[in-house]
Simulated scan of single mutants.
Amino acid sequence: MLNQISLFAANTKGALSKITGVLAQSDVNIYTMLATDSAEFGIVRLIVDKSEEAKSALEKAGYQCRLDKVLAIDMASDKPGTLNRILSDLQNANVMIRYLYISFDRSDSTPIAVFCTDEPETETFLRGKGYRLLDRF
């Protein structure tokens, strides 16, 4: 499993660059980032090379952060239906997915499905089905 930092950010101009600025000053490399918005604030999710240091730096800058465990599946292919196969296997196992986003492996440009679930046995199930789970980007 991977550590993901989740934080709330103001839905204002420059809000994301303030976050990335804090991380840059702390020499933290961002592997993947997802920012979603609502009327007043956004939720930013990050996977970085130094999650504890990043969380500490962001908190010192005034952000409320938490570390979440997420699963990252090497999809191994960008062909249509690859994600559907993974999601179908999870549905058949009765696994509830809280959220999901797609990133890419920087070395070979293959997609990576990053998702969060509250089902503790999901990692074991996926490995048993032959999926390659990543413990780092």
Results as ranks from 00 to 15, higher is better:
Phe8Arg: 08
Ala61Tyr: 04
Asn84Ser: 14
Ile5Asp: 01
Gly21Cys: 08
Ser51Ala: 15
Ile112Lys: 12
Met96Lys: 08
Gln25Tyr: 05
Tyr99Met: 08
Asn29Leu: 07
Pro111Lys: 07
Val95Thr: 11
Met75Asn: 02
Asn3Trp: 00
Arg45Phe: 05
Glu121Ile: 07
Lys18Gly: 08
Arg132Asn: 12
Lys60Tyr: 02
Leu83Trp: 07
Ala61Met: 07
Val95Lys: 04
Phe115Pro: 00
Pro111Ala: 08
Ile97Phe: 07
Leu87Val: 09
Leu34Lys: 09
Asp49Gly: 05
Ser38Glu: 05
Asp74His: 10
Val95Pro: 00
Arg85Asn: 13
Leu46Cys: 04
Ser103Cys: 12
Leu87Asn: 13
Ser56Ile: 09
Arg132Leu: 12
Glu40Tyr: 07
Ala93Ser: 11
Leu7Glu: 03
Ile97Gln: 06
Lys50Tyr: 05
Ile73Gln: 00
Gln91His: 10
Asp89Val: 10
Lys69Met: 05
Phe104Arg: 13
Ile47Ala: 02
Gly14Leu: 04
Asp118Asn: 13
Thr124Gly: 05
Leu67Ser: 03
Ala24Met: 09
Ser103Arg: 06
Tyr31Pro: 00
Asn29Thr: 12
Phe115Ser: 06
Tyr101His: 13
Leu34Met: 14
Tyr31Leu: 02
Ala72Asn: 02
Leu83Phe: 11
Asn29Phe: 10
Met33Gly: 02
Met96Asp: 15
Leu16Arg: 06
Ile112Val: 15
Ser17Asp: 11
Val28Gln: 03
Val22Arg: 03
Asp108Leu: 04
Asp27Trp: 06
Ala57His: 03
Leu34Ser: 15
Cys116Gln: 14
Ser88Ile: 10
Tyr131Ser: 04
Arg127Ala: 07
Leu46Lys: 02
Lys129Cys: 13
Ile73Phe: 03
Gln25Glu: 15
Thr82Lys: 12
Thr36Phe: 04
Asn94His: 13
Asp135Phe: 06
Thr12Arg: 15
Phe104Ala: 11
Cys65Phe: 05
Ala93Lys: 10
Cys65Tyr: 06
Leu46Tyr: 03
Ile19Pro: 00
Ile86Asp: 04
Leu133Lys: 07
Ile19Gln: 01
Leu100Gln: 07
Arg136Met: 02
Phe41Val: 10
Tyr131Val: 06
Tyr31Lys: 08
Asp78Ala: 14
Leu67Ala: 05
Ala15His: 09
Lys60Ala: 14
Pro120Met: 06
Arg132His: 12
Thr110Ser: 10
Asn3Val: 00
Leu23Cys: 04
Ser88Lys: 12
Phe41Met: 10
Leu83Glu: 07
Phe104Met: 09
Ala39His: 09
Ser109Leu: 12
Asp68Tyr: 01
Asp49Pro: 01
Ala10Val: 07
Glu59Phe: 02
Gln4His: 06
Leu126Ile: 08
Leu71Tyr: 03
Thr20Phe: 07
Asp135Ser: 15
Ser88Ala: 11
Ala24Gln: 11
Gln4Lys: 05
Val22His: 04
Leu71Trp: 02
Gly62Gln: 08
Leu2Gln: 01
Leu16Asp: 02
Asn11Gln: 09
Ile43Ser: 08
Asn92Trp: 04
Leu7Asn: 02
Asp68Lys: 10
Thr36Pro: 00
Ala35Gln: 10
Ala93Cys: 04
Gly21Arg: 07
Gly62Arg: 08
Ser51Glu: 09
Ala10Arg: 11
Met75Gly: 01
Met75Asp: 03
Arg85Gln: 15
Met1Gln: 04
Leu90Gly: 05
Thr110Asp: 00
Glu40Ile: 04
Ala113Glu: 08
Glu119Leu: 01
Ile73Lys: 01
Leu87Ala: 13
